[in-house]
Design a protein around this nucleic acid. Structure first.
Lengths: 184, 184
DNA sequence: TTAAAATAATAGACAGTGTTCATTTTTATG
DNA sequence: CATAAAAATGAACACTGTCTATTATTTTAA
């Protein structure tokens, strides 16, 4: 419930203006309660962001399940569409930097890892048998590629450069890399 | 001078813990002065980040000037090495989100655009004559690609995935896209 | 049912932040 | 010098995350 309202709040005002106090106020709790439960601002955001990952995975799964034909395109477009539909939530994932020394709890890691697993599976399905071992490494590289394009699309960098079709751009790069992997 | 100390401060503590008050204190100014000059926290960070871009461009230029042979590799490695040597400064560029409605001043835009110009030039030099018109678009796509890999390298995503050689990974993707562009 | 233990929730206090602004100090100019 | 322009000040405001001793509530046992 705290996470739910936190999620709403984060989606609304964005990472920079997010306030744990405001979240507490909105659900009628006092700040103390919130800190008894989460201990720290960082852990609250961590929990909210992990929830965002869950929604993101759902978003992709729904699209993949009803995809006919081009599953790679579905994946790339799903990556972008989630980010575009939830810009503040999506950006918050990458805006949030844990203080040095603090590591992300294994449970959250597991949830977040699912996204990569999905991509890895689709990449493996496209690769020919002999190249299939390369799927995990190629998959994370392609995620990084799409991520870079998505970042520039959302933060305005592409707009400044005059780029108007970032999704197609990202997809072209992914296609090229997959083709190259097939030939080797 | 304010920017200089701000730069030092940002490099030291990172975007999240950066404080304009602390900067003022360190150079013996009062907060008021700092706000007379920059007007707002955002504009101070904007100025610092633009300076980071200048250093980044220098970093790349130095390496390109003394590069023998593989200039594309030099570019990719230079992108990464600057980020690695100045993680807080580099991340701050992308951590900083202007409030909606506020746009980045043209002067800063110009400085920041130089980086893309450098990449575009090198990409154009590698492409065959008939494909040279595609250089700008391909260049910004490759910057996005490398950016994604660099982001995941610095924020720990690649480490969680078990990836240990992000630079080579990024370079492989860039090579594939350049090869594809040559054949078309 | 009642007493004790465990859990949940509270709100005040603290140190820090960005921002504003009337005031003072410094510098440059006639 | 005296005056006008520029630069610098720091108190005040409304916030923030975090800690804490205190109070309420719920669960458990007798």
């Amino acid at each position: 419930m705290i996470i739910l309202e936190g999620h709403r709040q984060l989606a609304e005002v964005g990472f920079a203006r997010f306030s744990a106090r405001e979240v507490a106020k909105r659900i009628g709790y006092s700040i103390g309660t919130l800190y008894n439960v989460f201990g720290t601002h960082d852990r609250l955001i961590l929990a909210i962001n992990t929830r965002t990952f869950e929604l993101w995975v759902d978003h992709l799964r729904v699209r993949l399940d009803s995809a006919e034909g081009d599953r790679i395109r579905t994946l790339v477009e799903g990556y972008f569409s989630f980010a575009r539909e939830n810009p503040n939530l999506w950006m918050a994932i990458y805006d949030h930097r844990l203080p040095p020394g603090v590591t992300i709890p294994p449970e959250d890691q597991a949830v977040r890892g699912v996204l990569t697993e999905i991509v890895t599976r689709e990449v493996a399905a496209v690769l020919p048998e002999p190249a299939r071992d390369d799927a995990p490494r190629l998959a994370r590289s392609l995620v990084a590629t799409v991520h870079g394009h998505c970042t520039f699309a959302l933060n305005g960098t592409f707009a400044l450069m005059g780029e108007t079709e970032p999704v197609e751009l990202a997809l072209a790069r992914v296609r090229e890399s997959l083709s190259a992997a097939m030939l080797s």
